[in-house]
Design a protein around this nucleic acid. Structure first.
Lengths: 133, 133
DNA sequence: CAGCATCCCTCGCGATACTG
DNA sequence: CAGTATCGCGAGGGATGCTG
């Protein structure tokens, strides 16, 4: 899942079921590229669409647009048109999106530390039930 | 994704690409039911498999087993056999799993606060581009 | 009680292409 | 430059059933 969570959560909310706090938050940045988008916008400021494409070369044009649209719908980022010879779309974090940054940052830190541990123990790619307890 | 992240990350690590800290962490609890499992084990202690089934009535037997297996493989939870008339499997968080709790907890808090905002603004199920900036 | 295999359907997401 | 539509594959995950 990536993005299944988002659909499920929206469904539950529609049914008046608000008992899904963690999943709700998870749904904000689940879905491919979303964490990265939030992270970059949060730490480096506004980006144009075409800049994001360069930043995430593996993300297809379509998916990038789709994810940005969802992030806007969720209120995490804002979208502004900038005129010129060619129209450019500027994306940046909203205050709501910024409030999510600490969580993303701690995910970054946790991941970095854990990856170093795995690396040092010569467990290059086994995330497994090694003796890291 | 639910769980696509996990596969992708493992693949990247295999290729020696360690530049995926956030995604790596995300992969730990992405995938249906995982956040809940971690949360429950973290805050309420050890659970037997059949207790988890009761706790998460919507999770299928198969998926629950599968997710638990992955969590064990990732080193977040431990699995212990307990003999008796019927064998029971006891699951609990490892120290590594516990180190993830703060993140899950902040996700819980963020979600709770955001859901309250939405509720108060009479935006029962629209997660949308409302004027909550 | 718990794990794993099989069948099957849904949906995320990539590739490609058209529009303003 | 940016958004959206169409097609297609592959993976997540539900239902069911067998095994120890």
């Amino acid at each position: 899942m990536t993005d299944t969570v988002r659909k499920l959560v929206r469904q539950r909310l529609k049914n008046g079921d608000y008992t899904c706090r963690k999943e709700f938050t998870l749904a904000m940045f689940s879905g491919k590229w979303k964490v990265n988008i939030i992270y970059h916008l949060g730490h480096e400021g506004t980006y144009y669409f075409y800049q994001l494409q360069t930043l995430l070369p593996n993300a297809s044009h379509k998916e990038l647009a789709k994810k940005l649209k969802e992030l806007v719908a969720d209120g995490l980022i804002s979208r502004e048109e900038e005129d010129g010879p060619r129209i450019k779309m500027a994306y940046s974090l909203t205050p709501l999106g910024e409030s999510l940054l600490p969580i993303i940052d701690s995910m970054y830190d946790w991941g970095e530390q854990r990856l170093q541990e795995l690396h040092m123990n010569n467990v290059p790619f086994n995330l497994g039930p090694v003796k890291n307890d």
